[in-house]
Amino acid sequence: LQLFIKTLTGKTFTVEMEPSDTIENLKAKIQDKEGIPPDQQRLIFAGKQLEDGRTLSDYNIQKESTLHLVL
């Protein structure tokens, strides 16, 4: 599923993930694309901070959802 990642600077980029992927996987993918170390990434969806060990489906993140990346 394609997700939109929006940064505080207003930049938006996309990543391609599976619902079974963990937040950790997502942070690694963001590191590949943007060079931001996972330990500096905080991801927010629907007002909640996402925890590394959980999956996208745990948070009911669907295709074309927008996640906010806070550094």
Rank of each mutant, 00 (worst) to 15 (best):
L1D: 05
L1F: 10
L1S: 05
L1K: 04
L1Q: 05
Q2V: 12
Q2M: 15
Q2H: 11
L3H: 01
L3M: 04
L3N: 01
L3P: 01
F4Q: 10
F4V: 09
I5V: 09
I5F: 03
I5M: 02
I5N: 00
K6W: 08
K6G: 03
K6T: 15
K6R: 11
T7P: 07
T7Y: 15
L8C: 05
L8R: 14
L8Q: 08
L8P: 14
T9S: 12
K11R: 11
T12W: 09
T12A: 07
T12R: 09
T12P: 05
F13W: 07
V15Q: 02
V15I: 14
V15Y: 03
V15M: 07
V15K: 00
E16L: 15
E16I: 14
M17W: 09
E18R: 11
E18Q: 14
E18C: 05
P19T: 07
P19I: 10
P19M: 11
P19R: 09
S20R: 11
S20I: 07
S20K: 08
D21K: 05
D21G: 10
D21R: 06
D21L: 05
D21M: 09
D21W: 04
T22P: 06
T22C: 03
T22N: 05
T22Q: 05
T22A: 05
I23F: 02
I23K: 00
E24T: 12
E24M: 11
E24S: 15
N25T: 09
N25E: 15
L26W: 00
L26T: 03
L26I: 09
L26K: 00
L26D: 00
K27L: 02
A28N: 12
A28K: 12
A28G: 09
K29G: 03
I30D: 00
I30W: 01
I30C: 02
Q31P: 01
Q31G: 08
Q31I: 02
D32H: 14
D32S: 12
K33L: 15
K33T: 12
K33E: 13
K33D: 04
E34V: 15
E34F: 12
E34K: 09
G35D: 06
I36D: 02
P37K: 10
P37T: 07
P37R: 09
P38N: 09
P38W: 11
P38Q: 15
P38I: 15
D39I: 12
D39A: 14
D39Y: 15
Q40D: 10
Q40M: 13
Q40I: 12
Q40W: 08
Q40S: 11
Q41C: 04
Q41R: 01
Q41K: 01
Q41I: 09
R42N: 09
L43S: 00
I44K: 05
F45P: 00
F45Q: 03
F45T: 02
A46I: 06
A46C: 04
A46E: 11
G47M: 04
G47I: 02
G47Y: 05
K48L: 14
K48F: 08
K48S: 07
Q49Y: 13
Q49P: 11
Q49F: 12
Q49V: 15
L50P: 01
E51V: 07
E51C: 04
E51S: 09
D52M: 06
D52K: 05
D52N: 09
D52G: 08
R54P: 04
R54V: 06
R54M: 14
T55D: 03
T55F: 08
T55P: 06
T55G: 03
T55V: 13
L56E: 00
L56W: 02
L56K: 00
L56Q: 00
L56C: 03
S57P: 03
S57T: 15
D58A: 05
D58R: 02
Y59S: 03
Y59E: 04
N60P: 04
N60C: 04
N60F: 08
N60T: 05
I61C: 01
I61S: 02
I61T: 03
I61N: 02
Q62M: 11
Q62T: 12
K63I: 08
K63Y: 11
K63W: 09
K63R: 12
E64I: 06
S65M: 08
S65F: 07
S65T: 09
T66I: 12
T66E: 14
T66C: 04
L67T: 02
L67H: 02
L67C: 01
H68N: 09
H68M: 09
V70N: 06
L71Y: 12
